[in-house]
Design a protein around this nucleic acid. Structure first.
Length: 583
RNA sequence: GCUGGUAUAGCUCAGUUGGUAGAGCAGCGCAUUCGUAAUGCGCAGGUCGUCAGUUCGAGUCUGACUACCAGCUCCA
């Protein structure tokens, strides 16, 4: 690499830099724990990791010792030398060095693969590279081991659990500090913490994975649902509600039982087998079948805010982000193949509108059908091409994600980027030729004959619960006016202003706002502090001056004291802000 | 589910080598009527996650279970 490549702007260099640091980690582990067996240790998005098989378990104290050893290795300025070996010699070398995992990796390499090693001092590792030329190039003070945890060999839950050490490294200490600050910021925004502090929602031991929503959290939920209804009505959707429990036979018909029974909850009613729905679509199919439809009724757009239950593994649960009961903002479109292009594009535009409203950037991923796709190859190829064409013909950029689609079809996923740069998969558009077939859906064509519609399964929020979790972290609890559980709080300075404060609060309430008052005999600074911590968008500080003039002194949570305005002007501007849903 | 860790008041945390619990904030009461992020004083609040065990004695030691945390796996 030439000198001007020595920067993290160059992705290749960054990878080589971090990969080299992971080798330094492995070398340090081998020095301190000679019996440790090496598995793999790649560079990843935020740094690197290395997996080891050791007798003793690593602890944070171990990490400190390893970090010190790594710094020594950096100081030793060991040069990295690459060499290649024929397969048998490579296996022999790794066998001699007692590295069974490396031997397994070599045996699994393709016949014609070049087998290369990197050597630094006494340390040798099987590795394709590339690497830096010297361990001294790694900045010792811009490197940190962040955590240690278990990880399965080759990512397989049936294989042995190894010990993984995560670390990160940069070219400058400032960059490391900035990274660590970002981690701290994420902790500060943790929706589990904010959810409790702002009294939005919580999870209790009594219902792992089953969230409680408190009055203030319900305000946010209801506002999100109102907006969803408003938008879907405008986009020509009808709304339905289908049952949470349906008989087991339905789930055999849909294919969910075959593909998903481990994650479903079952129950018995009058001796018959029933299942709690993990998805809304089968219910949607039955709703479609209530009567015969004409081709003139298509495309038929149907939405459902449906509560689904999925048995997630206990270790996978995480606040509102991963729960066992959640509400999907499902929207199904029944249509003909001629409709497909415009309908898919319409949904893309709809989802775009929703994300923009919250200030999310996003990117799309096209996921093709998985191995266990239930349709034939012709449909697989055809449906994937339809999605691809919509994206290509409309100049949409996307990432290809092979084999990650649903068992009934390919999909376009929306990955949004939040205020501190994390990505979340939320929206989805799934093209499905299978369910209409399985449920024998029909419509009468212009030719008078019966035809089979196709369908789209779509969601924008994905899960309302999870979306609220994401929004909480995105806004750090400071929700835009239209979502804020309390939109304004009236803070009289003394009891003399109590009547005026009550009048102001009543006026705001009449204008449709969620208002609170704080009449406690506390100093104004105390009341303001509390309102700030509750992240209430507007505080109205009212004293003798305001009562005399009929004005209100406005304080915003972000901008502090805004001075006095007339109550009417304030209410008008608030109405505008609420209506436009700006943030 | 797997690996490791954690569990003390509503919240955040102290609690020495085992000798039967403590602070701040929040809550309640009283005083204070104050102009943009914490007024003072007082009161109340915990069978120390649950169940066993060791011990004269367990918040402290052991085991099982539950939940949570960090990852892994999974997320149709």
């Amino acid at each position: 690499m030439s000198d001007n490549n020595y920067t993290f702007e160059n992705e290749e260099y960054k990878k080589a830099y971090r990969h080299t640091t992971s080798h330094i980690l492995a070398q340090a582990v081998k020095r301190l724990y000679p019996d440790a067996r090496l598995a793999i240790g790649p560079a990843i998005a935020d740094g690197f990791y290395y997996d080891f098989d050791t007798a003793e378990t690593f602890t944070p104290e171990t990490l400190d010792a390893l970090e010190a050893e790594m710094k020594k290795i950096i100081k030793e300025k060991l040069s990295l030398e690459r060499f290649e070996l024929p397969r048998e010699d490579a296996i022999q070398l790794m066998t001699e060095r007692e590295e069974p995992y490396k031997v397994e990796l070599i045996r699994d390499l393709p016949e014609d693969a070049v087998i290369s090693f990197y050597k630094q001092g006494e340390f040798v590792d099987l590795c394709a590279g590339p690497h830096l030329d010297n361990t001294g190039r790694v900045k010792a003070n811009a490197m940190k081991l962040t955590s240690c945890t278990g990880a399965y060999w080759r990512g397989d839950a049936n294989k042995k659990m190894l010990q993984r050490i995560y670390g990160t490294c940069f070219m400058k200490k400032d960059e490391l500090d900035e990274y660590l600050a970002r981690i701290e910021e994420a902790k500060r925004r943790d929706h589990r913490k904010l959810g409790r502090e702002l009294e939005l929602f919580a999870l209790y031991d009594e219902g792992p994975g089953f969230p409680f929503f408190f009055p203030k959290g319900m305000v946010i939920r209801n506002e999100l649902e109102s907006y969803w209804r408003e938008l879907h009505q405008e986009c020509g959707y009808q709304e339905i509600k289908t049952p949470i429990i349906l008989n087991e036979e339905l789930w055999h018909r849909s294919g969910h039982w075959d593909h998903y029974k481990e994650n479903m909850y079952f129950t018995k009613i009058d001796g018959e087998d029933y299942a709690v729905k993990p998805m809304n679509c089968p219910g949607g199919m039955l709703a479609y079948k209530r009567r015969m439809w004409s081709y003139k009724d298509l495309p038929m757009r149907v939405g459902e805010l449906g509560l689904v239950h999925r048995h997630e593994l206990s270790g996978a649960l995480h606040g509102l982000m991963r729960v066992r009961a959640f509400t999907q903002d499902d929207a199904h479109i029944f249509m003909t193949e001629e409709h497909a292009h415009d309908e898919i594009l319409g949904v893309i535009q709809k989802i775009d509108r929703i994300y923009k409203l919250f200030g999310f950037e996003y990117h799309m991923e096209l996921s093709t059908c998985p191995e266990d796709f239930i349709g034939d190859d012709k449909v697989r190829e055809y449906s994937e091409r339809i999605l691809k064409d919509v994206l290509d013909k409309n100049g949409k950029e996307y990432v290809l994600n092979p084999g990650d689609g649903a068992f009934y079809g390919p999909k376009i996923d929306f990955h949004l980027v939040d205020a501190i740069g994390r990505t979340w998969q939320c929206g989805t558009i799934q093209l499905d030729f299978q369910m209409p077939e399985r449920f024998d859906l029909e419509y009468t064509g212009a030719d008078g004959a019966k035809h089979r519609p196709i369908m789209l399964h779509t969601a924008a929020y994905g899960s309302i619960e999870r979306f609220i979790g994401i929004l909480t972290e995105h806004f750090a609890g400071a929700f835009p006016l239209w979502l804020a559980p309390v939109q304004a709080i009236v803070l009289p300075i003394t009891d003399r202003s109590r009547d005026y404060a009550e009048t102001v609060a009543a006026r705001l309430k009449d204008a449709g706002f969620r208002v609170e008052t704080d009449f406690r005999s506390e100093k104004i600074g105390y009341k303001i502090r509390e309102a700030q911590m509750q992240k209430i968008p507007y505080m109205l500080v009212l004293g003798d001056k305001e009562a005399e003039t009929g004005m209100v002194t406005v304080r915003t949570r972000a901008g502090g004291d805004q001075g006095a305005v007339s109550l009417n002007v304030f209410i008008d501007s608030l109405k505008q802000e609420k209506k436009t849903r700006v943030y």
